[in-house]
Design a protein around this nucleic acid. Structure first.
Length: 308
DNA sequence: CGCATATCCTGACCGC
DNA sequence: TGCGGTCAGGATATGC
C-alpha cells in the first residue's frame, strides 16, 4: 500500500528517468484512470502531448509532474495518485503489457515508455492547472525550488496538508489543530487535511512509537504527545525510505521498492499475536474504520475515556 | 459545519 | 475443484 515513503521512491524514479523528456503521446486504457479528470480522457491527452515534463513533485501521497512548453512556459500539471495498488513503470515499448496496464506515455526521444499499472483501480491521473495556496505551495520534495511552478500545487491537492517530511511542516500548528478535534488520534493521523502521507501502516507504527492507543481522544492530547507522533512518523518513514531507496536504481520505478522493509522492521502492523519488540506482549488486532488496527496492549493501553 | 460511515475495486486467501 | 465469504484500504460522497 503506497504511503508517503513509497510515493517518494516513485517520485525519485520519475525524476531520474522521465523529467526533461517531451511527451509524444498519452493513452488511457481504462475509464477509471481519468475519472477525476472531469473533461474526460481525450482532454487529458490533449493537455499532455507535446509538453515537456519539467519536474516531479510530491505532497503526501500525491505526485505531480509540472508540464511546460518547449519554450519553458509553464502549463498544467499531471497529477498521479497510486491509490491502493498503483505502480509507475519505465519500460521498453515492446515489453509485454501488464495484466492491469491502465495508461502509457511515449516520449519524443523514443526511449522507454512510462506506464501506469493498477490492479484495484483506486488510483488515477488528472491533468489540471496549478493554483496558489495559503501555505505557499510546493510541499514535500521536488527538484527545483525556484521554478515558476514551485509556489503552487495542482487544484485537487489544494486541500491536502503538508507532510511530516516537508521542511515547511508546522509542528506547532499540527498540535493545535489536533487538539481542536473531537475524535481519536488515529482517525486524525489518517485525515490528509491535517497531516498528509499517512496511511494505516505508518499510523499504527507511529502510534506504537509514541506509546499511544489509536482511540486516545485528540482533545486531551498534549503538545508532547503530538510531537511524539510526529517524531514517530518521521523515524519510521525515513527508515522505510532508506530501505526502499536502495532498490530502485534500475530502469524501473516500482511502488514495491520499499517492500523489503516491511518484512523486517514493522513493530506492530500485520504482527497480530507476535511479541511486541519493546515489551514482549502479544500484538493485538482490532477492527477499526472498516479495517484493522494493530497495537501493543502493554505499551499502548486503552485510554480511560475510550474503555469499552 | 464537524464527524462518522458507506462506497468504489480486484485478487488472495480460507473453510467447506 | 470451486464457491461463497472475508480482507486489504485512499479518498470522497453522503448522512447525521
Amino acid at each position: 500500500m503506497p504511503e508517503l515513503p513509497e510515493v517518494e521512491v516513485v517520485r525519485r524514479g520519475v525524476a531520474r528517468w522521465v523529467v526533461g523528456r517531451t511527451v509524444r503521446s498519452a493513452r488511457f486504457l481504462h475509464p477509471r484512470v481519468t475519472r477525476r479528470h472531469v473533461a474526460g480522457p481525450q482532454d487529458a491527452v490533449a493537455r499532455t502531448e507535446g509538453l515537456v515534463v519539467a519536474d516531479a513533485v510530491r505532497r503526501g501521497k500525491y505526485l505531480w509532474l509540472p508540464l511546460a512548453s518547449a519554450d519553458g512556459d509553464a502549463a498544467d500539471a499531471m497529477v498521479v495518485h497510486l491509490g491502493m495498488s498503483g505502480q509507475l513503470l519505465v519500460e521498453a515499448a515492446d515489453a509485454p503489457p501488464e495484466k492491469h496496464l491502465r495508461a502509457v506515455w511515449e516520449f519524443d526521444d523514443e526511449r522507454d515508455d512510462l506506464r501506469f499499472v493498477d490492479q484495484r483501480t483506486f488510483g488515477g491521473v488528472a491533468v489540471v492547472p496549478l493554483v496558489g495556496v495559503a501555505d505557499g505551495g510546493l510541499g514535500g520534495l521536488g527538484e527545483s525550488s525556484d521554478a515558476p511552478w514551485s509556489r503552487c500545487v495542482p487544484a485537487p491537492v489544494a486541500h491536502i496538508a503538508r507532510d511530516p517530511l516537508d521542511p515547511a511542516f508546522d509542528d506547532a500548528l499540527f498540535a493545535k489543530r489536533l487538539r481542536q478535534r473531537t475524535t481519536g488520534v488515529k482517525r486524525a493521523l489518517l485525515d490528509q487535511t491535517l497531516v498528509s502521507g499517512v496511511g494505516n501502516i505508518y499510523a499504527d507504527e507511529a502510534l506504537w512509537r509514541a506509546r499511544l492507543h489509536y482511540a486516545r481522544p485528540t482533545r486531551s492530547a498534549t503538545r508532547a504527545q503530538a510531537d511524539a507522533l510526529l517524531t514517530g512518523l518521521r523515524e519510521v518513514m525515513t527508515a522505510a525510505l532508506a530501505a526502499g531507496g536502495t532498490s530502485f536504481d534500475s530502469l524501473y520505478v516500482n511502488v514495491n521498492g520499499a517492500s523489503g522493509y516491511f518484512d523486517r522492521s514493522l513493530a506492530v502492523y500485520g504482527q497480530a499475536g507476535r511479541p511486541c519488540p519493546r515489551c514482549g506482549s502479544p500484538v493485538r488486532r482490532d477492527a477499526f474504520m472498516n479495517r484493522s488496527s494493530f497495537s501493543c496492549p502493554g505499551c499502548q493501553p486503552v485510554p480511560r475515556a475510550a474503555h469499552w
